[in-house]
């Protein structure tokens, strides 16, 4: 497993339009589904907001190492406003170097600053790696259960 050189510093900052190509490249590498328009839409929605939506990137001299996106959602099914984290990805070559933890912590700090005290996410049941990551950050099952149905059944 490659590691960041001991003296490699990375910073977490809001995503800029110039980061989008790298974000799309990373996401395509991880999910094998190129979604160019989707990421431009996410940037339009969250990249320019500073109080209720956050799109952060981790960067070093080597470029974008990872990113995280989250927003504050209020009163869904009676829930108090809470921070939703709906995407987090770190370059496969640079994992297990605490980049994910730093992105998560930076997003939590933004949520806290915006006045929310709880963070939520939703994951595929078989997404074991991401689930292990969120568990390692102290997240536990919340009070909601996700249900779904084919509309034409």
């Amino acid at each position: 497993m490659p590691t960041l050189a001991a003296n490699t510093e990375f910073e977490i900052r809001p995503a800029a339009a110039a980061d989008l190509d790298a974000v799309i490249h990373l996401d395509t590498q991880i999910t094998a589904m190129p979604k160019v328009e989707y990421w431009h839409g996410i940037f339009e929605r969250f990249g320019r907001r500073e109080t209720d939506g956050f799109f952060l990137v981790a960067t070093s001299g080597e470029g974008v190492l990872g990113f995280v996106v989250g927003e504050i959602r209020a009163w869904e099914f009676g829930s108090d406003p809470c921070g939703w984290i709906f995407a987090i990805e770190v370059s496969p070559d640079l994992r297990m170097n605490k980049v994910g933890t730093a992105l998560y912590a930076a997003l939590c700090a933004n949520f806290r600053k915006a006045g929310v005290s709880r963070i939520r996410t939703m994951l595929a049941r078989d997404a074991q790696l991401v689930m292990q990551f969120f568990r390692s950050q102290g997240m536990m099952a919340g009070p909601f259960i996700q249900l779904e149905k084919e509309l034409d059944e």
Binding site: R125, D126, Q128, M131, Q132, F134, R135, S136, G138, M140
Partner: peptide
């Protein structure tokens, strides 16, 4: 069963120790 499995496979020993400490 599927939820039980997903929960139990998402918690490593290291994470379980963190939960115990809290």
């Amino acid at each position: 069963d599927a939820i039980s499995r997903a929960t139990l496979s998402s918690i490593t020993i290291d994470t379980m120790l963190k939960i115990s400490r809290r």
